[in-house]
């Protein structure tokens, strides 16, 4: 019997490809976001709502959509005049760096791109472990969910830099306590920056879009 010491990250291969993606995207000065949430929290709606704001600023951006099946989300985003590429993962519950690497040729076909939003498969568990090569992971949670979600799904909240609490217009009709949700999120990840949005009323969308634009411009300058 032999014992062979390995001491390697299980997702080392994914991390390597993610590092290549990050380098390639950074070379072109593109700020990249990995947008995650449970299904139905409003990731695509948030992108749709931000589209006009980002165009006004102006920020040139494109979207890569990850879903199990179909190109419904890419079509929704394209209708807002935003270039979108659909990746279908089949049965996989998350995007990985390898899948994203295949979309880069399409991404780089758009000259002068400043911001890339990768909308991950709706899932609050699996995407936490898969680095795609993004600059920031952003979690969206909605007021139709529980305000204890950060405590129940801590991995995704600790992996994120930003949190968007969406559907604030619905809050009066649910038991969701925004103050408590903020507290829970900051307990799990004290470094989270938190935004509140409603895609229905437009509340907070401009602030969030402007913040992303600043991040993208800062990256371009660096």
């Amino acid at each position: 019997m032999h014992e062979i010491l390995i001491e390697e990250k299980i997702l080392a291969r994914n991390d390597e490809i993610a590092a290549e993606n990050r380098l390639a995207l950074s070379d072109k000065g593109i700020y990249t976001i990995n947008l995650v949430s449970s299904p139905g929290a409003g990731k695509t709606s948030l992108i749709e709502s931000m589209a006009d704001e980002l165009k006004k600023l102006p920020v040139s951006f494109a979207v890569v959509e990850g879903d199990l099946e179909g190109d419904f989300d890419a079509k929704r985003v394209e209708r807002r005049g935003v270039p979108a590429l659909q990746i279908t993962t089949g049965r996989a519950c998350h995007l990985d760096a390898h899948q994203v690497s295949h979309s880069l040729q399409w991404v780089f076909g758009h000259a002068g791109l400043e911001l890339l939003i990768i909308e991950n498969v709706g899932n609050m568990v699996c995407p936490a472990e898969y680095d795609l090569g993004e600059d920031a992971m952003i979690t969206v949670m909605s007021t139709a969910e529980g305000d204890d979600k950060p405590l129940k799904y801590p991995a995704i909240f600790t992996a994120s830099e930003l949190l968007v609490i969406n559907k604030t217009d619905l809050a009066p009709y649910t038991d969701f306590d925004i103050t408590k949700a903020r507290e829970n999120a900051l307990k799990v990840n004290p470094y989270l920056k938190i935004f509140e949005t409603s895609c229905r009323t437009g509340e907070g969308v401009k602030e969030f879009a402007t913040y992303l634009a600043e991040l993208a411009k800062a990256k371009r300058r660096s």
Binding site: H2, E3, I4, L5, E8
Partner: peptide, 10 residues
């Protein structure tokens, strides 16, 4: 942590 530590075999 999400690491592979070692393997044992012949």
């Amino acid at each position: 942590e999400l690491d592979i530590i070692s393997l044992e075999g012949d």
